[in-house]
Amino acid sequence: MSKEQLKNLETQFEARIARDEKIEPKDWMPEKYRKTHIRQMSQHAHSEIVGMLPESNWITRAPSLRRKVALLAKVQDEAGHGLYLYSATETLGISREELYNQLHTGAAKYSSIFNYPTVTWADMGAIGWLVDGAAIINQVPLCNTSYGPYARAMVRVCKEESFHQRQGYEIMMKLANGTMEQKDLAQDALNRWWWPSLMMLGPTDAESIHTEQSMKWKLKRKSNDDLRQQFIDQTVPQAELIGLTIPDPDLKWNDERGSYDYGEIDWEEFWQVVKGNGPCNRERMKARVGAWEEGEWVRDAAMAHAEKKQERKQKQVV
């Protein structure tokens, strides 16, 4: 293909997206589009499955049977969402094994919030309420993203996730309305998860490298800072409603902007966690790699069995 032809194809491609047309797997797409989507979609998938770990940590210790089944179902959903997203990524010509390999070798990233430890039961509430809350803000616009398989996966994910945040908020509410000890648990969890949740919405616009291109491809509809503001504005009243205090002395309603002003985020901490120096980065990776390696003989056995069955079937035909 000549340079000019390529340019032509690219122009047509961008025009299709601008017209809100969806791109499907077999359609021609610029290499950069494919690579960017593999990166973002797999990062999203990795976040789902690494995100299972901090919560699965409390499944065996959930305080009631009702909480236990709800948490199990939630963590299971995350496995499902990881699966939908890996499958969607595979339509771009990369296998799940390759994607896992990128995760396990550190070549691919996942949301850094999952590198924080879940130390009390209240963390299940805080994660559902704050982390899933922030995730939803990020995800809803993606239901309309330009790549068809990603958009379809996100529609399913968003539909299923609607119970996750409610599950978390209900846990917090119950704690906040409980004994002093329970209230302390809730406040402590909010204190620890608030700032990482704000960081989860990504670096400030000035530092964000992918934003402009991503906006064009509808991988992003709003800037990180806008999303963060939206999250804060919607979450502060929810905290007030159950009598919890947001751990930010600079948090103040700004009448003029119609939004909350908030204190400075410790971006040094954010970048350290991204680089692998969070409290649980190593543990999380060990758990993922461990499960994959320990499962190898199981996966191999299933393949070997399937082949034997196939052979037997063929012999019968002969």
Binding site: Y84, S87, R156, R299, A302, H305, A306
Partner: peptide, 11 residues
């Protein structure tokens, strides 16, 4: 509905 991985049709 989507796709998934499995060793054989039953699975």
């Amino acid at each position: 509905f989507g796709s998934l991985h499995a060793a054989d049709a039953e699975m």
